[in-house]
Amino acid sequence: MSQTVEVLRHQALDKLDKTTDSDELAQWRSRYLGRKGAVGALFGTIGKLPKEERAAFGQQVNALQSELQKAFEEREQLIREQLLAQDLEEGEIDITLPAYPRQMGGLHPATRTHREFQTIWAEMGFQVYQSHDVEEDDFNFTLLNLPPHHPARDMQDTFYTTNPRVLLRTHTSPGQIRAMRELGEGGSKPIRVILPGMCYRQEQVTARSEIQFTQVEGLAIGRNIRMSDLKGTISEFAKRMFNTNAKVRYRASYFPFTEPSMEVDIECFLCDGEGCRVCKYTGWLEIAGSGMVHPTVLRNGGYDPSVWSGFAFGMGPERITMLKHGIQDIRYFWGNDLRFLKQF
C-alpha cells in the first residue's frame, strides 16, 4: 500500500476516534471526505503518477474512501448513541416549574349559553329571528294582549323613553308579532323561530335583579300545533340542555299573550330533587314560562285563530347559567370582571 494512503488512513482514523459530537464529526467529514477533503486531494494526485501505478493507487484510494466512509458512519452511530444516552441520563428538568401561560380568549358566559340554546333549538327546526331592543309600546304590550292599564303591565317595570310611544322592550315577545307579520305571509305560513335578545326592566340592580338581561323566546305557529306538542318540545329541550332525564313539571300560570299558560319546572339537577339551597328545598327549578299563543296575539300577527294555533315559551339564559355554575350574583354578567370571565 502506498505510504501516503497509509499515513492518511492512520491520521484519519485516529482523528475520527477523537471526535465527540456532531460538529466535530462534520468537520472531520469535510476535512477527509468532503469535496475539497484529503481523500479527494489524493484522487487529484492520480494523474501525476506513472501510468502503471495509477490503477493500483486508484484502488487504494477508493478502498480508503470506502473504509473511512464506513468508519465515519460507525462513529456517527456511536456518537449518536452516546449522546442519546447522555441526554436521557442528564437532561432532566424540573417539571414542577410553572408553565408558560398561553394566552387564551373566551366567550362571555351569556354567549355560551345562547349558543347552547340556539344549537338545541336549531336541531328541532327553530331558527333565529332578531328584533329591536327599542320597541313601540304597541308591540311590547298592546298587540300582545296587554292593552293600556292591563293589570299584567304591573308585572313588568318598564323603561320608557322621551317618546311616550317608545320603550325598551321588557321581554322578547314583541318579536313574536314582528316574526308573524314578516314570516307569516299574511297568516298563511307556519313559523318556528327563536327570538334571542337583550331585554330591560326598571329595577334596582342587586345580586338578584338586573336592569338588562337576555331572554330566549320560542314561537311555533301551525294549523295543528297542540298543547301536547308544547310539552313534548320543552321536555325534549330540558333533556338536551340539562343532560338529564330529570322530571319536568308543568304548572298553570298566567301570561297575557298565551292561554293556556304554564310555568315549566325541572327537577333540581343539583340535588336530584331532594331539596337544596338553590331550589329552596322544593326540589324544583323554574326554567321557562310558556303557553299556547293567545288568539288575540295570533290575530294581531295576521293569523285566523280559529284555524291556526301555536305555542310560545321564554327562558332566561342568565338564570340557567347561574343555576348551572352556582353563580350567586347576577351583576357578574355585565360587570365583565376578567376574574369572572376567565373561569368559563
Binding site: 327546526g125 314570516l183 305560513k189 307556519p190 313559523i191 318556528r192 311555533a220 301551525g222 294549523r223 295543528n224 300545533i225 297542540r226 298543547m227 301536547s228 306538542d229 310539552k231 313534548g232 318540545t233 321536555s235 325534549e236 313539571r249 308543568y250 304548572r251 298553570a252 292561554e259 293556556p260 299558560s261 304554564m262 299556547m292 293567545h294 288568539p295 288575540t296 285563530p305 280559529s306
Partner: peptide
C-alpha cells in the same frame, strides 16, 4: 275564539297539566 281559549285553560287545569301527553310536532315544517 278567545272565550274558547279561556275554557280550554279551565278544562286543562282541572284535568291536570300532567295528564296532557308529550308529543313531537307533527305539523308542517316552515
Amino acid at each position: 275564539v278567545v272565550g274558547r281559549a279561556d275554557l280550554l285553560e279551565e278544562i286543562a287545569r282541572m284535568l291536570g297539566y300532567d295528564r296532557i301527553p308529550e308529543t313531537i310536532m307533527a305539523d308542517e315544517m316552515p
